[in-house]
Amino acid sequence: MTIVFGVFLLTLMLITAIAIVRTQNLFVAVMLSGIFSLLLASNFFLLDAADVALTEAAVGAGISTVLYLSALALSAENERAPYSSHRLIALAVVSVTALLVIYATFDQPRVGDPAAPVHQHVAPWYLEMTRDAIDIPNVVTAVLSSFRGYDTLGEVFVVFTAGIGVLFLLDKPGARHGGTQTVGRVRLRHYLIPRLVGRMLIPFILLFGLYVQFHGEYGPGGGFQAGALIAASIILYALLEGETRALQALPRRLLTLLIASGALLYGGVGVAGMLLGGNFLDYSVLASDPVKGQQLGIILIEAGVGITVTGVLLSVFHAFAARGRF
């Protein structure tokens, strides 16, 4: 049964991808990308990657769709010349790449083979050590925030960079002869049903976000997904009530502070480990009992991730939305 379902989802995904590339209406392309992300998330779920599925759904189908739509409102809705003159060269380059990949997969171990080298070396150690040294149920969270916490620190700073990048680009005063339709005006205020349903949804999304934030050690979730969900609920609020209301609730300066403080909280936990006699990002020294210390460290850094992600996503949204008002 899973086979049929898997093949079905994968095929649907391929069809969606091709449709995305073929359509000339950018609005349709963005909507289809949202659907593509949901399909991808379902595939991840089938492949036992619950955390990744949750993230892909929140990011790909939620946040990135909102960002694309904001950008579309400021730029164009259709593409004019669909293909460049070198489409044959492009096709050749792409085909060679794909053939190489397929060639490489000939010798690859069968998918799901428990004896494959990939499952023999590092992974069992993670499963074992999560139980012994950190003692939380979600191994993905343990690897993400402790064993490979340095990667996650980097990830937070990637988000941070993107946030300051968009603010830097769109804070520039000057020529604004762009959009015809503005995000500021695309409000749902005049539509009764979306507004009512939306209003009812907001508290639940927010609550779910908080649940995901603090439940990351036990089930799928964590700071990043939570940040995306919380940001989504506030963006929904902005769409329903107008961006000004949302900005009154969470002013720009506060968002900037959120972005910086989340990143600093994460880094600070790392430095604290250093000051208390461990290495950078060593949470074991944070409490007298190393296991408790690990758990404390994970809660703190996940909070840092959540704060920065919420701040960045909201700032980026507002930066796009404000650009449209002139």
Partner: peptide, 22 residues
């Protein structure tokens, strides 16, 4: 299932959305 690729892809998804936003 192996947790490590999932962790890596969580990071990569975040990198991807950051690039898109920029």
């Amino acid at each position: 299932s192996n947790p490590l690729p999932q962790v890596l892809i969580l990071t990569a998804i975040v990198v991807g959305i950051s690039t898109t936003a920029l």
